[in-house]
């Protein structure tokens, strides 16, 4: 199957602290890859490298057949429109309403008329089941609603790749399950390839086609959820208890 992301020997340090020591992985089209790891193992750094928010020290990073480290700002911005990123905090723009938040990524698409933008916004909100929240401000939304709106905002550009940074953190078990099911539903509906960073094992169980365990800045183990669940390795077992 065609790979949409290929990472080879990626390394990143912050001062004397080497966060990513040697990461190599790939993501196939339409696949959900879950990355498990303890806090501070560089999971968020890894996906921020993929969208060019953090520049790695060494290694090769290809997304949609383009070497991210060799792109200029214009090319990188064009590529970023094909990669959705759901932040841990959802990162909704506080000064804008839900509608304005969803319209914001569409502002550079000059060929779209306001009517078409409105239709896209409503469709995106329907996808996450929150069309009634269209005129609300982010401060009026609950944690789960913010995550859903954040997801709708990233999906409005129909990205080919989705990157989820701890999508269920800070949510109650029921809302977490709803968000995980939504991630799976979006994969099926839009055939997007996704990297899901999490340490929520229930989220991994629901969403993962493949799981990679990150440990000490390297890819420690890889397999399906079931394979890793049955592992006798203490470092892997710790996640599945």
């Amino acid at each position: 199957m065609e790979n949409v992301i290929e990472i080879e020997h990626l390394k990143k340090s912050f001062g004397n602290n080497q966060v990513l020591k040697d990461i190599s992985l790939n993501l196939a089209k339409g696949e959900n890859l879950v990355i498990l790891g303890k806090s501070g193992t560089g999971k968020s750094v890894l996906i921020k490298c993929i969208v060019g928010l953090i520049k790695p020290d060494e290694g090769k990073l290809t997304a949609l057949q383009k070497n991210i480290l060799e792109l200029n700002t214009k090319e990188l911005n064009a590529l970023r429109k094909k990669i959705g990123f759901l932040f841990q905090s959802a990162a909704l723009y506080d000064s804008m309403s839900v509608k304005e938040n969803l319209e914001f990524p569409l502002r550079d698409l000059k060929e779209l008329k306001q009517d078409e933008i409105n239709i896209k916004v409503i469709e995106a909100l329907q996808n996450v089941g929150l069309e009634k929240a269209i005129n609300k401000m982010p401060s009026e939304l609950s944690g789960g609603m913010r995550k859903r709106i954040g997801l709708a905002r990233t999906l409005i550009l129909n990205p080919e790749i989705m990157l989820y940074d701890e999508p269920t953190t800070g949510l109650d078990p029921i809302t977490s399950k709803e968000i995980s099911s939504l991630i799976l539903e979006m994969q099926k509906k839009f055939n997007t390839a996704s990297i899901i960073i999490t340490h929520d094992i229930e989220c991994a169980r629901i969403t993962a086609n493949r799981v990679i365990v990150l440990n000490d800045g390297t890819c420690y183990a890889e397999g399906t959820f079931k394979e890793l669940e049955q592992s006798n390795d203490e470092k892997i077992k710790g996640f599945f208890i």
């Binding site: 928010l53 990524p105 502002r107 550079d108």
Partner: peptide, 21 residues
Amino acid sequence: AELASMKVTEQIDAMEVSGIN
């Protein structure tokens, strides 16, 4: 304060990954 809170809550990063300067 507004820009600093936008940075803390990753709103500036969110704009950047949307391909907006």
